[in-house]
Amino acid sequence: MIIQLNGKRHELPQNIATVADLLEAFELKNRIVIVEINKEIIPKEQYLLPCLKDGDAVELIHFVGGG
């Protein structure tokens, strides 16, 4: 399926269906990361649900230095 990932068109391999899969694929499992799909924040309890759909706008958000 094809999603918008952090503003970029991105093709996901077939085996990625959950947020957990996505984080695993980008090696983000042990990082502080906030996940938003179509402007809805996804709670951690839902990371194992197969919620990713074709055309989703997915944002992987984190904290960076700032004032």
Binding site: L5, K8, F26, L60, I61, H62, F63, V64, G65, G66
Partner: peptide, 24 residues
Amino acid sequence: LTFAVRRMNIFEQSQPNFLEKLDL
């Protein structure tokens, strides 16, 4: 400590994020 909220730089992960190394 203040900080900002941004998209992760997932397509170019080489860039370091200093904040992650602090014991928050």
